[in-house]
């Protein structure tokens, strides 16, 4: 499957970089959408671009555990301060999208299928 870097996702889709600017070369090969962290933990594929509205510290921990390529906060959901410092510390890129979850995922899916 085609892979895109988190940097390419941010640039092509117009998403802002909320944290983890040093880790934008990480590659993603699929999209995963879910908000319930206990579900994400067991189901998010490694190297996925995980889209959620959960911008708290536990979301960052779950991204590390599941080894997702990044977190993308849809709907302009807020990344809180504790989560931002955890993401910086763990090198987890976090992007911000103004679009709803489905539309955010669709933009990335189109890049992967291009």
């Amino acid at each position: 499957m085609k892979k895109v870097t988190v940097r390419e996702i941010a640039q092509t889709c117009g998403f802002s970089v909320l944290a983890g600017a040093d880790a934008l070369d990480r590659q993603a090969d699929r999209v995963f959408c879910c908000d319930l962290l206990s579900f994400v933990m067991g189901r998010a594929p490694a190297d996925s671009a995980w889209i959620t509205v959960m911008g708290n510290v536990n979301a960052v921990a779950v991204a590390v555990l599941a080894d997702t390529a990044c977190i993308i906060l849809a709907e302009n959901a807020v990344l809180d301060g504790e989560a931002r410092s955890r993401a910086e510390g763990q090198g987890v890129p976090v992007l911000g999208s103004p679009h709803p979850i489905f539309d955010t995922g669709l933009l990335i899916q189109r890049m992967l299928e291009d």
Partner: peptide
């Protein structure tokens, strides 16, 4: 509780 082991280095 789900039978998910803690990963102390992460959590």
């Amino acid at each position: 509780l789900p039978a998910v082991e803690n990963r102390p280095e992460i959590f």
